[in-house]
Design a protein around this nucleic acid. Structure first.
Lengths: 333, 333
DNA sequence: GTGAAAGCGCTAACAG
DNA sequence: CTGTTAGCGCTTTCAC
């Protein structure tokens, strides 16, 4: 149906002035008489004028669009982050193009080409492409901000969270409550998971307590299995620190299945603060990562990398904080 | 860092011919000598040429971009659909712009403006904006294909699935297995949810069985609560039909938590066939909606609406089919 | 087969 | 404050 769009020219004609002036008026350029501005706005509205982005982009050298590449689109947490970044981008007057294509599939590089063709100012990546080459190739072409563990590339800024501190807060909380036997249900695959496990060991050692790590993965099923494993070990721990909320959820489920109450019999702490954790039933004590803050930092980092004259790469680690709800309490005796 | 991009002119210069010819060669235009084409491709590659999409869009009248608006971005199923649509769009040579902004927030209409400015050929909406005005306003401006329950707007094509048939298949399967006490964990908000519940009631009535509906929402937590509610009712059902897979997952989770085995003690059937349903552990029997087919139909509908000369609105209802896995079996005695 | 010229819709100097 | 003049990078007639 090849629509016929209203152009600046049409508006100019109807308003009885030049295209240039109409353009200025519409964009809020300072040098325009207020009444002119108003009149133009009026005419533009009645004509249903919408500026043609392509034309605008073509003529103005500075690109104002940023690509967002989502690592695992089916992970709601990643989407949540993408939404926050999108909103933040909008807030600072930038536009965004989000890519749903998984980073690991062979199309990823093509996706980089697409962004290049779109002349985006830079790219924000949520979670890493598993193969480093893809990231490197992208970084070769465009300023990149990567949300995840620090990566050593001279063209990539990274925004990370302080896993170590989060773990220390969690373990510290449990110890303060009086727990001594604190087990850890670990993730194995992600770098952040390994970092959390290492931090757990360190914190326990530091407190003069024995570490007890059950390996697993960052999902609900793993939490269930973890509890079964702990049960087979003999003396059950009084507290469990899970490497993420999904594991914690699974663990709580299995604990209840075994007739153990949370937190009366066993305390549980998670990591991430996913929406489910808030639920009245669960009331999971957990380590929160601030999504909005991550978004803000990521956008700021990109601006620094793509728009400033200094072109500075930054590596930032954001603080996390323990959110105390009801899943952790003092041990029984 | 205002990059300096290679332009067609640069390539033309380096290849020793005109921009026009380079353009033709690169796009695979018929009237180009094969050796010329190859030479040009070679030069373009070494120069790292990437066509400027904005310029291309500006000059060629026909838009080749389609907007995808995702209803609930945090619903993995919607993302899955969006990915499928994106892939299908790509397959037919169209580009896509996906919007993560929730359709219900006040920014939705602005989002329509954004798409208008982008000069997209049309929009594919995954699940409806709750307020009809938003959809109507959008449809006023652009050809729309809406994935969800039929909507009576002369500018909107709809692609829907046959919820009723899906429910009948699920309930029929349970009855055939010998179940009599079949409870339903319902969603309440979505139109499709209400349709499924109505179909459940009809199917039960038709079989001369008593309906038992527990209201809830289309998420995991609701499934957990639903089981608790059923438990309070006294005699526990031998089978549960959940309005979607998320509910089914939550229900199974809680059933196991209560020491009930699936399907030995309680059978469970879901709806959607999300990736999780396939998992070895879960093996959820569920009603599959074919995501790829929906994507294909949606894209085809949009092409009909936006690119064909006839400009035809269509309303399609796609079949669904029961996928039998292990979460439903015969009742205990 | 290939080149020259025109122009898509817009913004950005530069004059007034 | 406002109009005029150039293009941005590309595709598309229309010639040769």
């Amino acid at each position: 149906m090849t629509r016929k769009y209203t152009t600046l020219e049409d508006v100019a004609l109807a308003a009885g002035m030049s295209r240039a002036q109409v353009s200025r008026a519409l964009r809020g350029d300072p040098g325009v008489k207020p009444e002119t501005r108003e009149h133009v706005a009026q005419v533009a509205k009645t004509l249903g004028y919408q500026p043609n982005i392509a034309a605008r982009a073509l003529v103005s050298a500075q690109p104002d669009t940023v690509g967002i590449i989502i690592g695992e689109p089916t992970n709601p947490f990643h989407i949540q982050l993408a939404q926050a970044i999108d909103a933040e981008l909008q807030r600072v007057g930038l536009d965004s193009v989000v890519s749903l294509r998984a980073q690991d599939d062979p199309a990823t590089l093509r996706e980089g080409d697409r962004l290049l063709r779109l002349r985006v100012a830079g790219v924000i990546l949520i979670s890493k492409p598993r193969n480093k080459e893809a990231l490197a190739a992208l970084a070769e072409q465009l300023p990149c901000v990567y949300l995840g563990k620090r990566v050593n590339h001279s063209n990539v800024s990274t925004i990370d969270i302080d896993d170590k501190s989060g773990v220390e807060q969690a373990i510290g909380h449990l110890i303060a409550l009086g727990h001594r036997r604190i087990a850890h249900l670990a993730g194995t695959v992600e770098i952040s998971a390994r970092e959390r496990t290492a931090a757990y060991r360190a914190a326990m050692r530091h407190a003069g307590l024995a570490a007890n790590v059950v390996m697993g993965t960052h999902d609900v099923a793993s939490g269930r299995r973890g509890v079964d494993t702990l049960a087979e070990q003999g003396e059950f721990p009084t507290a469990i620190f899970a490497s993420n909320d999904a594991i914690a959820l699974g663990a709580i489920d299995r604990l209840k299945g075994r007739g153990l109450r949370v937190p009366e019999d066993v305390s549980v702490i998670g990591f991430d603060d996913i929406p489910d954790a808030t639920s009245e039933m669960l009331a999971l004590t957990t380590v929160r990562q601030d999504v909005d803050q991550q978004a803000r930092e990521a956008v700021a980092a990109l601006q620094l990398l793509a728009f400033s004259t200094v072109r500075k790469v930054i590596r930032k680690v954001l603080p996390v904080s323990l959110v105390v709800r009801r899943s952790a309490g003092p041990p029984r005796n």
